[in-house]
Computed example of a mutant assay.
Amino acid sequence: MTSKKDMRRQDLIVPYVEPAKEKSDGDMTSTMASTLPMAAIFTRNKMIGWTAVVFALQSWLAETPEQKRTSTTPGYFSVGMAFMSLMVAYLPLFMPPPQNRAGAGSEAEAPSAVPLV
C-alpha cells in the first residue's frame, strides 16, 4: 500500500483572497427609495406611498460613509420625497375635488350642439 503521507506541495498552495467589490454595483434599496415616491405621486396609491416611506427610511439608515460621500442626493431627501408622496395620496381627504353640478359638463368636453333654426 501507499503511505498516507500528504502529497501536496506547500510552494504551490495559493491562499483564497475575496475579490474586491466593483464600484458600479448599484444599491437596489436606494433605487427603490427614489423611484417609489414618483410612482405613488403619479398613481396616488397610498400603499405605494407607505412602501416608499419604508424603503426610504431603510436606505437612509443603512447609508455607509462611502455612499454619503459619493451620492448625489442625501438620504433624508428620499425620505422627504416619500412623505411628499403620502401627502399627495392623502390630499383628497383634506381638500376634496370640486363636485360638478348635475347637467353641467366639464371644461374638457366639447360644447353641446346648437340646434339649427
Results as ranks from 00 to 15, higher is better:
Y76R: 04
V54K: 09
R8Y: 01
N100F: 04
E107Q: 05
R8M: 03
P115C: 10
A40E: 12
A40C: 05
T31L: 14
A52L: 03
T43F: 01
M81E: 13
A40S: 07
Y76K: 09
T51G: 00
M32R: 02
K46T: 04
W50M: 08
M38Y: 05
S85D: 11
P37Y: 04
A33W: 02
V54D: 15
V14T: 06
L93Q: 15
G103S: 02
E107H: 03
P37C: 07
S106V: 07
S59L: 02
E107G: 11
M95S: 12
A39R: 01
K23D: 15
M87Q: 08
W50L: 09
S30E: 13
T43Q: 01
A102S: 03
N45V: 03
Y16S: 04
G49K: 00
A40N: 05
T73F: 13
L116G: 14
G103T: 08
W60K: 02
F77P: 10
M1V: 10
T2L: 01
D6P: 03
E63P: 04
M38W: 08
K4T: 06
P96D: 12
F55V: 10
S3T: 12
K46L: 03
L86S: 10
L86K: 05
K4G: 11
Q99N: 12
P115V: 10
E107A: 10
Y90E: 15
A102Y: 00
L116M: 14
M84D: 12
D6V: 01
M84V: 08
S24N: 09
L36D: 08
T31N: 10
F94I: 15
Q58M: 07
K46I: 05
Q99E: 15
L57A: 04
G49L: 02
I41F: 03
L91K: 01
V114Y: 15
R101H: 07
